[in-house]
């Protein structure tokens, strides 16, 4: 039971990040490798505001706003000048941008771990599982965020514009839909989701500059395993990978011995390799239509 709860906690973080990635990949067809750094900026922004004496809720909004501003900067500097030339270029430029952001975080905030709520968590008095109020709120908020994004995408005029741009950018443009503006908005939404992920880390664990890359790669693992064109598939894959990671290190495998927690990150990789062997396009990818 505890493993499932741990999987839900870790899966929610991965889902938050991977949902944004799926959105960006679906609409713009690009990968953003600075996503982990944007998550950290959102988390550190919230930590800084809260540590400066601002109450928690405005700090959370402020953290997301800081994340949104940096995501917009990321788009303008590392994506917009390149992605129409070739969708692969942002993969390289966002690596460069992630290095710049990493360096800026290291120079301004150092490597010390920071927690948004340093006073400790409020654990619920259950015997079977150990879970805090904060963790339940975070899991709930993640589900709400992801559902809101999916609702906007599938049931609003704005979502229809996005889907029209994905299906036929030129036709959408001829109908008066500004694809450039839509691309910016979608990219910034993914950054805000990532910033929420950073806030999640800052509340549930500690923020450290070294977290950025593993977090990004885990989210991408979910994207690839779930099927890059499937939003819900990506979310589901994020939870599956997180569950597998928890099971891998929380279950005695041989003669009561456990796998070291350090090997946890390898589970996601092995999972993807198995998925690729069985279905190279991802577990939940749509069947491509052919003429």
């Amino acid at each position: 039971m505890q493993l499932i709860v741990n999987g839900l906690i870790a899966g929610s973080l991965a889902a938050l990040m991977a949902g944004g990635l799926a959105l960006v990949y679906g609409v713009l067809g690009i990968f953003n490798l600075a996503l982990g750094q944007l998550a950290l900026i959102g988390g550190y922004g919230t930590w800084w505001l809260h540590a400066s004496g601002i109450p928690l809720f405005p700090s959370l909004i402020g953290g997301m706003a800081i994340g949104a501003i940096f995501t917009w900067l990321t788009f303008e500097i590392a994506v917009a000048p390149f992605y129409r030339r070739d969708a692969r270029i942002p993969l390289v430029t966002t690596i460069a941008w992630s290095m710049i952001l990493d360096a800026a975080i290291l120079l301004t905030l150092e490597e010390r771990p920071r927690s948004i709520l340093p006073g400790g968590k409020h654990f619920l008095p259950f015997d079977a599982v150990r879970i805090s109020v904060e963790q339940i709120v975070l899991i709930g908020c993640t589900l709400i965020f992801v559902c809101v994004v999916a609702w906007v995408l599938h049931s609003t005029p704005f979502g229809r514009k996005i889907r029209a741009t994905v299906q036929h950018p030129d036709a959408a443009r001829s109908l008066g839909i500004s694809s450039s503006l839509l691309h910016r908005i979608v990219f910034i939404v993914s950054g805000v989701l990532a910033a929420c992920g950073g806030i999640y880390i800052g509340i549930d664990q500690n923020l450290t500059p070294t977290l950025a890359f593993p977090v990004t790669i885990k989210a991408y693992a979910a994207l690839i395993a779930g099927g890059k064109d499937n939003f819900w598939g990506t979310i589901l894959a994020a939870y599956i990978i997180a569950m597998l990671e928890q099971l891998a290190v929380g279950t005695p495998w041989w003669f009561g011995n456990y796998v070291s927690a350090g090997y946890q990150s390898i589970v996601a990789l092995l999972f993807i390799i198995v998925v690729l062997l069985i279905k190279p396009t991802g577990l939940f990818s749509h069947r491509a239509r052919a003429a």
């Binding site: 500097i77 590392a78 000048p81 390149f82 030339r85 070739d86 692969r88 270029i89 390289v92 430029t93 690596i95 460069a96 941008w97 992630s98 290095m99 710049i100 990493d102 360096a103 800026a104 290291l106 120079l107 150092e110």
Partner: peptide, 27 residues
């Protein structure tokens, strides 16, 4: 502690600038 991040930042800027210059030939 400062030199490491500075180097990281400098290399990130050089990479970004190099891609900018080579954006038509990279892919």
């Amino acid at each position: 502690a400062v030199l490491g991040p500075l180097r990281l930042m400098l290399f990130g800027i050089i990479l970004l600038a190099a891609v900018w210059i080579q954006r038509d030939t990279l892919f």
